[in-house]
Design a protein around this nucleic acid. Structure first.
Lengths: 132, 132
DNA sequence: GATTGACTTTGCGCGTACTCGAAGTATTAT
DNA sequence: ATAATACTTCGAGTACGCGCAAAGTCAATC
C-alpha cells in the first residue's frame, strides 16, 4: 500500500497541485500508479521528496533539480556531476545565509532606531541605516 | 545634481527595470525628476534604497514594503506600527536562517554520501537523506 | 540652429514558479 | 450503490521581474 496524493501532500507540507506540478516537470519520475491510474507514493519516495524540498527551499530552480533527477536516472556515470552540483549549490546556500545575516544586522540596527524614536515620540525615517 | 537611473542602478546593484518597477509600485515616492521628466536620485535616497533592498533580500514582499513606506509618509503617528513590522520581520528572517541551516546540514550529508559513492564508483540515490 | 548620439521615458508582453478553481470523468472505500 | 476522492485538462491569477520598441530628453558638435 502506498499513500494517495492527499496523504503525500499532508506528509510533505506541499499542496496536491504542487506535487502534480513537480511530477509534470519531471521531478518525481518514480511515483507509482495503481492499475486505475491513481498515484501511490511509497515510503522511499518521501526521502526523494525531502531532498527535492531541501534543494527547492534553498533556492534551486526546478530546471536544475530536473537536471539532477535526470542524471540520477542515467546511473553511476553521472555521480561526479551530481556531486559537483550539490557542492556548488552548498556554496550558494552558505553565501545566502551570510547575506541574510548581514541584512539581519541592518534590520536590528533599524529596530534600535525605532525603539528610540518610539520613546521620543518622533524620529526621522532616514536615520541610521548602517551604524548602531 | 543627482544620479540618473543608470548610475543609481550601478550604485545599488539593482537593474533600471527594477528601480522603475519599485517606483511604480510606490516603494520610492521620494525620487525627484528634472523638468524634462528624468529621474534624479539624491544621495539620501540611497539610504532608503538600502533599507528597501535589505527588506526585499530577506523575503519581504513588495506589498508589505509599500505598507511600510506609506506609514513613513504618514509621519510619527505610525512609528509603533513600523517598529512592530520590523520586529515581526526580524523573527521571520531568524526562522528563515534556521531553516536554511537545517537544509544545509541535509545537503552536507548528501554530499558526504556522494563523496563515498564517487570513490566506490557506484551509489544508490536513495541513500542517506537524513543521517550522516 | 540643427543634427547626432547617448540616455531615458513609457508601455506591453514574456517568463518562472507556483497557486487556485472548475469541468468532466474515473476510481475506490464503505 | 453511493459518496468521497482522485484523475486530467484548461484557464486564469500572482509575484517579481526582464526584454523590446517607440518616443522623448539632453548635451555637444557642426
Amino acid at each position: 500500500m502506498g499513500y494517495t496524493i492527499a496523504q503525500a501532500a499532508e506528509k510533505t507540507g506541499l499542496s496536491e497541485h504542487t506535487l502534480r506540478y513537480y511530477e509534470r516537470e519531471g521531478l518525481l519520475p518514480f511515483v507509482k500508479r495503481t492499475p486505475g491510474g491513481i498515484r501511490s507514493f511509497q515510503d522511499s519516495d518521501f526521502e526523494w521528496l525531502a531532498l527535492i524540498c531541501c534543494l527547492k527551499k534553498t533556492g534551486m530552480q526546478i530546471k536544475e533539480i530536473k537536471q539532477f533527477v535526470d542524471w540520477c536516472k542515467e546511473g553511476d556515470s553521472t555521480l561526479e556531476k551530481r556531486r559537483e552540483m550539490l557542492v556548488g549549490h552548498r556554496e550558494a546556500v552558505v553565501r545566502r545565509i551570510a547575506d541574510l545575516r548581514k541584512c539581519l544586522d541592518n534590520i536590528d540596527c533599524k529596530i534600535r532606531c525605532y525603539t528610540s524614536a518610539c520613546e521620543a515620540g518622533t524620529g526621522a525615517p532616514y536615520l541610521c541605516t548602517k551604524k548602531g
